[in-house]
Design a binder for these strands. Structure first.
Lengths: 314, 314
DNA sequence: AGTTCCTATAGGTAATAGCTATATTGGTTT
DNA sequence: AAACCAATATAGCTATTACCTATAGGAACT
């Protein structure tokens, strides 16, 4: 049995007439008759009584009509829901993002996304880069904002932007400079993430290249907590500039540019290769780029700034 | 889209693997792949993410799976219900029957039928023959027990038996005979059905052929009521022997055979030509015949019998 | 009886679901 | 890396079948 049989059957049941039903189905009457005969043979019973000029549904026919209608309705509804899904009128999008990126990119992104796609259920998980990668591989995540390069060949990563890492110090710290050479980091007390975090690894690599030995006095996982510890004088830290920039206002902190070389890392949008990306997913990526363009277009603000400084905008 | 696509899709979704799904479906893997591709094209979306060695349902795929399962369940359930219908495990049978036949044939028939087919809803309408014919023509009735010949070419009628008509008189009526010539009916006061009833017409025809003028003193539609009127002395009546036979016990009535000629009429099982007869319907006919054979096999009892006579069995 | 209005059947054709063979592509192993 | 596995996709052919036209057969209505 095929859906064709159901469609033909319902057309005949509705038209009460093979010839008219064949017209509406745009097939010839004999084709229709044969298909109905085949259906009746498969079911082992007559569905219509051919009573000369009129036809009537048998008991089996009446029973079958209800079920055929429901079956076809299910199929049509599925097609409709999928259209809505692909039109991003519904669905779910699960995104993993780095805690730092989360703080400056996600708020405006979520706001714009929900406005454009109110029917889509968006879920954002703030996770370390490695977990994002694992989540993408395990299909727990649809998209991930993580550090590049991504260590899995199975993931496609689209570079979004470079984050510059800056040194963060208490506002009244004795360091006089607005800029600091990498090699001058040596001996300074640092508050960093634990060793398995990408940001920590990145910092250590940079320091190693600059032949500097770091002195980690405190490890914390949350960048928020790290900044607080620094403000309270536990030491200094190194975090992405865009992240820190938003946290300076009303804090007791200041940013100090590192150079020679300038430490940077790349953030990209990653997703599992070959995975179907629906409209909501694609648009999420587009929004990422446009919002980042906005953020980066803001004036490259002076790196030294009083902790009491107000808005970043001139 | 056809049910094939749904079946194939569900097989892949269950097996999580095209090759294994193809095996269980007994088709080749490429055939399956092509069908899934066609389905995805028709829906305009991917249903599976081909992730190298494994596959996973997309959001659309998850959504589609639910609907596809429901659609197929509907179709299977319809087939199952129809099998039960044709196995007479369920269904409805609407039968029209003559009031006289109703009284002696239907009670044992219903009893046996309900025992064999407890799931079938049996509905018996006691109606004049003309209404039975009309009911069959209008598809209100599945079967009819009516007088032969049936006046509609569109109805098939299977003769079941002949009913002999007998004169019924009060037990102490002055008529001395156990038998009466048709022509001797002349002048006797009769209680009969109205003129549009077949039984009345039949009596009148018989009388006309016997060149006898009837004197109808009372018209009633129900044979039950007629017998009561006769018992109360309103007159005599002419009714089927099998019907009267069952009513004599504990009544004040006696039967008088009519002869020269013996008035008879035929009763048959009628149904609309070309109408599908399911098992319940066919078995109803078979039961009719076997029960009638039983009734007719009872000893041809003497036609003259005291109203106070007990059981018919010796 | 003739005519009309249906559905069923017959026979041929075109569309297509299926097959085998093979390419291609991730993932694993050496 | 290179070679190898395991899985799906593609190509080309074949068998099936849904469809068509023409026509037969039957009931209903002049």
């Amino acid at each position: 049995m095929e859906l064709r049989h159901l469609r033909y059957f319902l057309a005949v049941a509705t038209a009460q007439n093979f010839t008219k039903a064949a017209d509406t189905l745009h097939v010839s009457q004999p084709s229709l008759s044969v298909q109905i005969r085949d259906l009746e043979e498969e079911l082992g019973t007559r569905l219509f009584d051919r009573l000369g000029r009129t036809i009537a549904l048998t008991q089996a026919g009446i029973l079958f009509r209800d079920h055929a209608e429901r079956a076809l309705r299910e199929v049509e509804q599925a097609a409709q829901l999928i259209r809505e899904l692909d039109g991003a009128q519904r669905g779910r999008l699960v995104v993993g993002t780095l805690a730092t990126v989360n703080s400056y990119l996600i708020p405006p992104l979520v706001s714009q996304f929900k406005q454009r796609f109110p029917g889509v259920h968006l879920q954002v998980h703030s996770q370390p880069s490695a977990e994002i990668v694992a989540g993408l591989m395990a299909n727990r995540l649809d998209l991930g904002l993580c550090l590049l390069p991504v260590p899995e060949a199975q993931l496609t990563a689209i570079p979004l932007f470079d984050e510059q890492l800056v040194l963060v110090a208490p506002a009244r710290h004795r360091l006089p400079q607005s800029r600091l050479r990498m090699k001058d980091l040596g001996g300074l007390p640092l508050v960093l993430m634990p060793a398995d975090y990408c940001l920590r690894k990145m910092v250590e690599e940079e320091c190693a290249q600059a032949r500097v030995t770091t002195k980690v006095v405190l490890e914390m996982t949350s960048p928020e907590g790290i900044l607080q510890a620094v403000a309270e004088g536990a030491g200094l830290t190194i975090l992405p500039e865009l992240y820190v920039r938003q946290r300076l206002a009303h804090s007791n902190l200041r940013m100090i540019d590192l150079y020679d070389p300038v430490p940077r890392h790349s953030v990209g949008l990653a997703y599992r290769m070959n995975r179907y990306q629906n409209l909501a997913s694609k648009e999420f990526g587009t929004l990422c780029r446009s919002i980042m363009a906005n953020l980066l277009a803001q004036p490259a603000s002076p790196r030294f700034r009083q902790a009491t400084a107000g808005s970043r905008r001139p």
